[in-house]
Structure formats: structure tokens, C-alpha cells
């Protein structure tokens, strides 16, 4: 059975939800601890949402120095599928595995809502079960969710097809409506909205949406295909 790791940092909040999502698609969730220096030979890793280290200093800025991150950066550069959700995305940016950064939402408040996203890149390890251009709904909930980067970086992301998700109705001022991106290799994906909160009918977006499931089944599918 494919083993997908979920890292818990002090202040991680959605680690249990990410593990549940992994279980629901038939993979084995493996809980990883920030202070460990190995990834326990998992086949993929999720960095979950939350407020690791209270977002103190800057969201993700302290967690990137956690012992486990050394192993993660090496493995990601070696092609390990990695998904960063919300705070996990912020940590991936701080770790320079992904481009850009997040600042406070345009309205300066926490925003919690069901968010429509358009899938722009369905060739990553985490999106291959979506159709290109498909619109999906997953919850969005964050304080520092406004994606920024300089124009050259944004041009590069767009030029290389590395924008994975765009907001349909920009909720936070993110540049060019970008909700999620990938690295050049397509194995590391980060996004601000929360697919792990759209995996069970009745416990996610209004209308019983479970669009989030395909993030995790995509990863499982890629892992099975590569074995």
C-alpha cells in the first residue's frame, strides 16, 4: 500500500484531516514529526495547514528550519511528490521549493469560505485526475493568503504552465488570481485552499462537494503508476 506522510509541526491544525483524506483514497497515512530528521521512507508527503509556530515572524518562516525539512527538501529535489496546503504552501515557499510568498489578505481579515478554483495544470502528481480547465470547489480559510511574486517570476510561472490553480473570484488579492503553483518538475504543489476539507459529503463545502478527494487519488495513482 502506498504510504503518504503527513508532517506535524507545533501549531499544525489540519494534519489529522490530511491523514483522513489519505486514508479515504486507500493509501496509508504516516504521521511524521517536525523534529525527526527522516521521512520514514514514505512515498509522498503532505505539509498540512495550520499556524505552525503561531505564524510568528512570518507564516512558515520558522518551520522551514525544522529538522525534518532538510530531508524533505532533498527528497523533493529528487522527485518525491509533495503537497503543501495553506501553511504547508507557505512553508514550501519559505523553503524555496516553490516560488513567491504570501502576505496578509487584501481585506486584512481571516477569510473562511467555499472557494471555486480552476485547474490550469492537470499534469502534476497531485492534479492528474482533474480535467484541464475544470472548476472545483474546496474550502479556503486563512489570514495570510495573498500570493505575491515579482512580475518576472509570475511570467515564468505562467510561461512554464506552473500555475496549477486559479481563483474564480479572487478572494484575497493574489497576483493573477493564482491559488496554487508547482515547481519546474511538477512533483511539488502548493495551494492555499484546503482539499482535505472536501473529501466527505456533508463535512465540506455546501452541496456535499468532495472535489478534494482527487488531489489524493491523483497522488496515489501516480505512485502506483511509477511502481
Amino acid at each position: 500500500m502506498a504510504r503518504i506522510g503527513v508532517i506535524t509541526f507545533p501549531g499544525s491544525l489540519d494534519d489529522g484531516d490530511a491523514a483522513r483524506a489519505v486514508r479515504l483514497v486507500g493509501a496509508e497515512p504516516v504521521r511524521l514529526w517536525h523534529a525527526d530528521d527522516s521521512l520514514a521512507e514514505v512515498d509522498a508527503v503532505i505539509l498540512p495547514g495550520g499556524f505552525s509556530y503561531g505564524d510568528y515572524l512570518r507564516a512558515g518562516a520558522i518551520s522551514r528550519f525544522a529538522p525534518v525539512m532538510g530531508a524533505l527538501v532533498d527528497a523533493a529535489n529528487g522527485g518525491l511528490p509533495v503537497l503543501g496546503i495553506c501553511n504547508g504552501f507557505q512553508i514550501l515557499c519559505e523553503s524555496h521549493l516553490l516560488a513567491g510568498a504570501m502576505i496578509k489578505n487584501e481585506r486584512l481579515t481571516f477569510v473562511c469560505k467555499d472557494q471555486t478554483l480552476r485547474v490550469d495544470n492537470n499534469s502534476t502528481a497531485w492534479t492528474n485526475e482533474f480535467a484541464a480547465g475544470e472548476e472545483i470547489v474546496v474550502p479556503l480559510k486563512n489570514q495570510d493568503g495573498q500570493f505575491i511574486a515579482d512580475d518576472a517570476t509570475l511570467d515564468e510561472l505562467e510561461g512554464e504552465g506552473r500555475v496549477v490553480f486559479r481563483y474564480v473570484g479572487n478572494p484575497n488579492g493574489s497576483r493573477r488570481d493564482i491559488a496554487g503553483i508547482t515547481n519546474a518538475r511538477g512533483n511539488v504543489v502548493g495551494l492555499m485552499p484546503h482539499p482535505e476539507h472536501a473529501v466527505e459529503a456533508g463535512f465540506g463545502p455546501e452541496g456535499a462537494g468532495t472535489d478534494g478527494l482527487r488531489f489524493f487519488s491523483s497522488a496515489l495513482g501516480s505512485l502506483l503508476a511509477s511502481n
Binding site: L13, D14, G16, D17, R20, G49, T109, F110, V111, C112, K113, P139, K141, H194, E196, H197, V199, E200, G202, F203, G204
Partner: peptide, 14 residues
């Protein structure tokens, strides 16, 4: 007010 609060975390909110 309520859109400033997380209602999804823990995945058990019906």
C-alpha cells in the same frame, strides 16, 4: 463575522 472564523478544521463539522 462568521466568515472570519474557521468552521472546517477537524473535518467533523456537519
Amino acid at each position: 463575522v462568521t466568515d472570519q472564523y474557521d468552521r472546517y478544521v477537524q473535518g467533523n463539522t456537519a
